[in-house]
Design a protein around this nucleic acid. Structure first.
Length: 441
RNA sequence: GCCCGGGUGGUGUAGUCCGGCCUAACAUGCGGGCCUGUCGAGCCCGCGCCUCGGGUUCAAAUCCCGGCCCGGGCGCCA
């Protein structure tokens, strides 16, 4: 049989989940980890685990080779093995079949005790799990999160590709604390100081000036905030778009349709993995409801929350609002002063801006706006917010030579994963999360 | 960063309030033994733990102070 990778005469990799009736009576080769060993004396059951599932390897003492039998019962959990044997239909076995091995090769033994139980007989705390993430990720239920995450990213790329977006990569090492607001991580850049970028915002807009018209970027963002919550990370993945010749409503439509399509495709492509996690996905209806900032404030106030108009909504206010809005919804038309300098104020009422946050319950998933494309207004807004236009050299220049009107948003991919899978902690959605205290692994 | 709660075998818990009967318990694991249909296998024997530093006391896992670490809530957060 030809190898999928090199094309040579190599036995093709077969996963446990691919074993079917056609294989009954045939000899196959499996690779994986020893998930469990059940030694009944005259009969030994091994459970082999690979990426896609499990297979029971059965060794009846009277049937298999004596040395092989002795070797199998001495195996340690999580050792890596190769099994060559016959697939036998067996109603008493899980999935209706078992493998009677002719050969078991130990490719690598595992030490004991394990840092945590892959079988999940004993739960482990998130911190212990993250300290030993490679082992934690061996749990099908945990690995499934990342199979879904893969499908989510694929779905987003497909959606935006189909709509004519150009996927780009912008610098993550930048020269100045550009936007203000959040803290940046300083780094050493040869003889100068530089920073890790907090957002691709200024570069996305620069590409509007460059005439790209529709861009997508999926990449890391860095925030040096000392927050310590279940929904913040210091390194996150942001899905960003920027579109020319549309307003904020235009990019909100891309956002809600993209989210809906992500749900559809995850349902289509990840049925097994959703099953492992135990999640039943309901595709949200579009369009998502638009709730104005004013109305949101009103809801929170009616429930007894003290909200100052003009400020960002507090966690407690958002939780009150989420009592009425559990699914996806937009909070729109935020006070101009509460949003970044590049957000476009309404001509009719400059106190509010063409801005929106996409919410899922009380958690902010994305935020965006129509941007200011006029040089003079942009400079004025920078000054209003206490920023120095001199620090925005390359960015400001792009507004002098034909910057089209444009709008865009940034969405936290990790937050979207939380929303889709109902994860209680954002760290669950990330392979190797970076938070206030965790830099390893 | 603030407030509150916590740190006990590899893992997850009990014990701490009310100091002594804790030579620290249970589950899982690990080592050994028995067992031919397990799938949370079962049974028997064994192994392995009080976060660190200081203090109080005849006596500290237990009380007090400090450090480190963790959890929950909040703040900060394009």
């Amino acid at each position: 049989m030809a190898c999928k990778i090199c094309g040579g005469e190599v036995e093709m990799r077969k996963y446990t989940a691919e074993i079917c009736e056609e294989d009954f009576g045939k000899e196959i080769e499996l690779y994986g980890w020893v998930h469990e060993i059940r030694d009944l004396g005259g009969l030994v059951f091994l459970v082999l685990r690979d990426r896609e599932g499990f297979a029971q390897i059965t060794l009846p003492k009277k049937v298999v080779d004596r040395e092989l039998f002795k070797k199998a019962r001495k195996l340690r959990r999580e050792s890596v093995i190769k099994v060559f044997g016959q697939v036998k239909e067996e109603k008493k076995a899980p999935n209706g079949f078992e493998i009677i091995p002719r050969e078991i090769e130990i490719l690598n033994v595992s030490d004991a005790p394990l840092p945590l139980e892959v079988t999940e007989k004993v739960p482990a705390e998130l911190d212990t799990r993250l300290d030993n993430r490679f082992m934690d990720l061996r749990k099908p239920k945990i690995q499934a999160i990342f199979r879904v995450r893969h499908a989510v990213v694929q779905a987003l790329r497909e959606f935006f590709d189909r709509h004519g977006f150009i996927e780009v990569q912008t610098p993550k090492i930048v020269s100045t604390a550009t936007e203000g607001g959040t803290e940046l991580f300083p780094i050493s850049y040869f003889e100068r100081e530089a920073f890790l970028n907090q957002s691709p915002q200024l570069y996305k807009q620069t590409l509007m000036a460059a005439g790209f018209e529709k861009v997508l970027e999926i990449g890391p963002i860095f925030r040096a905030e000392e927050h310590n919550t279940v929904r913040h990370l210091n390194e996150a993945i942001s899905v960003d778009i920027e579109v020319s010749f549309v307003d904020h409503e235009g990019v909100m439509r891309y956002l809600e349709e993209a989210v809906r399509e992500v749900y559809e495709k995850v349902n289509e492509r990840c049925e097994r993995y959703l099953g492992w996690i135990g999640v039943d996905l309901e595709v949200p209806d579009t369009p998502f409801e638009r709730l104005s900032y004013d109305d949101a404030v009103e809801i929170a106030r009616k429930k007894g929350e003290d909200v100052n108009w003009g400020e960002d909504l507090s966690t407690s206010a958002l939780k009150l609002i989420a009592e009425d809005y559990g699914g996806y919804y937009f909070i729109v038309d935020w006070p101009t002063e509460s949003k970044p300098f590049y957000a476009m104020p309404y001509e009719s009422d400059p106190e509010i801006s063409k801005t929106f946050d996409l919410m899922k319950g009380w958690i902010e998933i994305a935020s965006g706006a129509q941007r200011i494309h006029k040089y003079d207004l942009l400079v004025k807004r920078m000054r209003d917010q206490g920023l120095s236009p001199e620090n925005f050299g390359f960015y400001l220049e792009t507004f002098r030579y034909g910057m089209p009107p444009h709008a865009g948003w940034g969405m936290g991919l990790d937050r979207l994963m939380m929303a889709i899978l109902g994860l209680q902690n954002i760290r669950e959605a990330v392979l190797f999360p970076r938070d206030r205290h965790r830099l390893v692994p």
